[in-house]
Nucleic acid binder design. Structure first.
Lengths: 222, 222
DNA sequence: GTATAACACGAACACATGTTCGCTGTCAAT
DNA sequence: ATTGACAGCGAACATGTGTTCGTGTTATAC
């Protein structure tokens, strides 16, 4: 492992490339790098990119425009996670989930929902279509029995039916939305809190509307 | 909102672009799309890209090579999130956290830790360096009072000191690692469980070793 | 001093790539 | 039959972009 430090130019190039990719979703060209880092000659940029590749900060595809990729050594992995989460939250946070009210969504997910649409969704479809994912921010501590805090973000997959044992968001006829484990016991449906010290509730199937399955719970304490 | 369905070709283009970007980290060129979707003429690809842009599935930067970006409508956000999480977990899951044992890490984080290294880390450094992030998978339900389940993944930032009110992973001299809210009360340190029905424990500062601050809790129920 | 390597510059080149244009075919509406 | 919108084709063009080459500069070692 050669521990040659990066020159200022090389650091600038790395930083610019990282920002550029975050901003534009594609790698920069040699000339774009040059302009940003005040290098007039494309060959100099090319030269330094070669050095960065030697040192393992990026990969290059020869003869391909914008053919460079930052490696983990250049510090992308953790960043992309945070940005992806930020983005998901910004884009797909379709509503809040509050005890005492049904889930309200602005536009596309549940508002256009229609009884007629409760058709069987094939499991493969669900796996393949990430568009069905959405996120809800939990307000209040009504979900505390599901180990979900005030402020937590629940990432769900939209589906209107549930299999036994899945944790789902259900809307009850008494205008309450909760997160519970779902068990269909034939004549009635058992909704089991995640907290074992709390009792299950039993409801008539007609009074239950499954809204989605809980895939992930996110809690930010920063 | 025109609800024209996408033609087969346009669906193929979207899918190919998504895969290509996941694989190569850069958008494809018109000709690459053409080859993948069996279109011989670049103008036809161009035409369909225009249609897709009209319908809001992507953005294009004119006169820029590989100047196309998929929008959220095309279902990228959720994908990148999942991949980023997978990647982070794969790369940075440095160990398990089990009640009754201190945190064990294979290589770089805590194992090389030395008493001498407990030096003040500037907050700005922490903000700037995403390398300090790491993840732990919680085993057992000893953290249940912190609203953290068996199997949850805790994303932490390595730090050896804590400010009051932060949720931290602490290692106690009795060989226990727990997640608690941290309060330094001078002579003693109060460790407060997240669950309000549980009592705080008080420990001597010499017996407490802060290992990191909890940034995020991840629970996958899929 | 000279030699050598690392770094930088600018110009020229080759080809990759987005854009444009004329043409054809299909299909539904008139 | 005619029109017009839509979809597709192929060729030509202008420009974007990676590559190469000769040269110059600076620092270090001999």
């Amino acid at each position: 492992m050669s521990e040659k430090p990066l020159s200022k130019r090389q650091q600038d190039i790395l930083e610019f490339a990282r920002d550029y990719m975050n901003k534009h979703g594609r790698p920069p060209t040699i000339r774009e790098i040059g302009k940003a880092v005040n290098i007039n000659s494309t060959s100099v940029v090319n030269y330094n990119l070669g050095k960065l590749e030697e040192k393992g900060y990026l990969d290059r595809d020869p003869d391909v425009s914008r053919g460079l990729r930052l490696t983990d050594k250049a510090g992308v992995a953790a960043n992309t996670l945070r940005e992806a989460i930020d983005r998901l939250i910004k884009v797909r946070l379709v509503g809040d989930i509050v005890a005492g009210r049904p889930v309200m969504t602005g536009n596309d997910s549940f508002s256009t929902y229609d009884e007629e649409d409760i058709i069987e969704l094939s499991p493969s479809m669900l796996r393949e279509k990430p568009e069905d994912l959405f996120a809800l921010r939990v307000r209040g501590d009504s979900m505390i029995d599901a180990m979900v805090n005030d402020g937590d973000i629940v990432i769900m997959k939209q589906q209107f039916e549930a299999r036994n044992g899945e944790m789902v968001a259900v809307w009850l006829r008494n205008d309450t939305t909760t997160l519970k484990y779902f068990f269909n016991e034939g004549k009635r449906i058992r909704l089991q809190p995640a907290n074992p010290t709390m009792d299950a509730i039993y409801v008539d199937p007609a009074e239950v509307q499954v809204q989605g399955r809980v895939l992930m719970v996110l809690r930010q304490t920063a």
